[in-house]
Simulated assay, not measured.
Amino acid sequence: MTHALSQPGQCTLVGAGPGDPELLTLKAVKAIQAATVLLVDDLVSDDIVALAAPTARIVHVGKRGGCKSTPQAFIEKLMIAAVQDGDNVVRLKGGDPFIFGRGGEEVEHLRAAGIEVRVINGITAGLAAVTSLGVPLTHREHAHGVVFVTGHAKPGDHGTDWRALAATAHSAKLTLVIYMGVSDAQHIQAELLQGLPGQTPVAIVQRASLPSQRQAVTTLAELSETLQREGLGSPSVIVVGDVIQGVQAARLAPSEARRHGTV
């Protein structure tokens, strides 16, 4: 006697953006509301998780540098098992799944298990950070391009060649957006100074887009000192480049400074 196979489920990687629920795309909201299982990263705000159906099973799978994290292999096994059980699985990630969100790794493992994956983009923290300061990432006069780079290399990886990147950024007029760079900021600063002037403007934005956002504007020569003095930690984005000159020149209006908690 044969038994009917259960209806297979589906999986969607959803970018939750930098934290403000109003920055979610409509497609992301619909996916969250339709999910029967949500696997949620640490950096996803409670207000966004609250959009899920009351009947949805919510599993918090924290992934944050410097903190105890759920092993990536375990998360992937959970996703595959839930889809095979017939669930509509949403893997809810801070920012964008394909920008330092390990989305590529997860897609590869799911496809290897015979599961097709849908990806819904989210606003990445690097973009939200500079937008909150009222400056762009690119500018016809100041920045001809932008580089998103991680300051956190996996074990056994030498990581970014910061000296080469600095030289390229200086000659090609590039904005550098550094994710997960606070813990190694002193080393990154020393290496970048080999190719960029010490007066290069720098912005540090912590918890971009959230009511608790804090930021500081400084120079590359004073990056580490500023981080320590202002007590800025993770999750923060460090933006290096002449596009920050607009903030240096005008700063934020007093009302904006109070609203954003400028230090």
Rank of each mutant, 00 (worst) to 15 (best):
L137I: 05
H139S: 13
E141V: 12
H142A: 09
H142Y: 12
H144F: 08
G145P: 04
V146R: 00
F148N: 06
F148T: 00
F148D: 05
V149K: 05
T150S: 15
T150C: 01
T150L: 02
G151Q: 04
K154M: 10
P155Q: 01
G156K: 06
H158Y: 12
H158F: 11
G159L: 07
G159F: 06
T160N: 00
T160R: 00
D161S: 07
W162M: 09
W162T: 02
R163L: 03
R163E: 10
A164N: 07
L165W: 03
L165E: 00
L165D: 02
L165R: 01
L165S: 04
A166D: 08
A167F: 03
A167L: 14
T168G: 09
A169L: 10
H170E: 14
S171F: 08
K173A: 15
K173L: 15
L174V: 04
L176E: 00
L176W: 05
V177R: 08
V177S: 05
M180A: 04
G181D: 01
V182P: 04
V182W: 01
S183E: 15
S183G: 13
Q186G: 09
H187R: 13
I188L: 10
I188K: 11
I188T: 05
A190Q: 15
E191R: 10
L192Q: 08
L193R: 10
Q194H: 13
G195T: 03
G195K: 03
L196I: 09
P197N: 06
P197E: 01
G198V: 09
T200Q: 14
P201Y: 11
